[in-house]
């Protein structure tokens, strides 16, 4: 009898329990506990690919909701991400060849002039946890580098972040650079960050403004479901 073919009710129940525990450990920022539960899951032969979504990503989704509600702040969210990453590391050897196709592809970065990448990092994490292939270009990224990445990866969307009123003007440069190179219509442009807004997105010719990570994922789901 193998674990894959004939799973007992007890094992299924145990998996359910561990799945919830792992999700809770991520929300509670317990890195060691998340790692321990992930090890228990693999040691018991209970790993399934969908745990990444139903447990790890689900925990991060709760964490980002708590952030949007003002319950969690960035240090808390970073610690949740550490716990999620610790669990994913344990699962990684068991994930080979099984990974489901990503829902879509996203290029993300903080625009030139902005070296604050914290918000962008959070959004990148949540988008990746949401099932997207993410190419993170980092911080202080020139328009030409965004344009190069669009040509290299053919993303569904480009996500631009700026935390500063003094650098948000560079978002317009990215839109113009894509237009100049003829790739503007190949992808949607989403902007985010404290100083920007829907009206600013409109003004510079971007497609959307996302006030937070959760909204960015909802927009991407919408963009990718309307594709094809």
């Amino acid at each position: 009898m193998t674990a894959e073919t004939r799973e007992t009710k007890g094992q299924a129940a145990l998996r359910e329990q561990l799945k919830r525990n792992l999700s809770d450990a991520i929300v509670e920022m317990e890195v060691e506990e998340a790692e321990r539960i992930a090890k228990e899951i693999t040691a018991q032969g209970l790993f399934q690919m969908n745990l990444l979504e139903t447990s790890v990503a689900a925990g991060m989704a709760v964490a980002s909701r708590l952030y949007e509600e003002g319950e969690y702040f960035i240090p808390e969210l970073l610690s949740c991400a550490d716990a999620a990453e610790a669990a994913t590391e344990i699962f990684r050897p068991y994930m080979l060849g099984e990974k489901p196709a990503p829902k879509g592809c996203v290029v993300i970065g903080s625009v030139e002039g902005d070296t604050h990448d914290i918000g962008k990092n959070i959004v990148a994490l949540v988008i990746e946890a949401g099932g997207y292939e993410v190419h993170d270009l980092g911080r202080d990224v020139p328009a030409s580098v965004f344009a190069d990445a669009v040509e290299a990866h053919h993303p569904d969307a480009v996500a631009l972040a700026s935390l500063m009123t003094t650098s948000m003007g560079h978002m317009a440069d990215v839109v113009q650079e894509l237009t100049r190179r003829g790739t503007r219509s190949s992808c949607k442009i989403i902007i985010g960050g404290k100083p920007v807004s829907t009206s600013f997105a409109k003004k510079i010719g971007a497609d959307y403004y996302a006030p937070g990570a959760g909204e960015a994922v909802r927009l991407l789901d919408d963009i990718c479901s309307r594709r094809s």
């Binding site: 920022m29 960035i74 240090p75 808390e76 970073l78 610690s79 550490d82 604050h116 990448d117 914290i118 990092n121």
Partner: peptide, 11 residues
């Protein structure tokens, strides 16, 4: 840097 700082602040 912000990320290392905030992580250290927490832990």
């Amino acid at each position: 840097g912000i990320t290392p700082f905030l992580k250290a602040m927490f832990k």
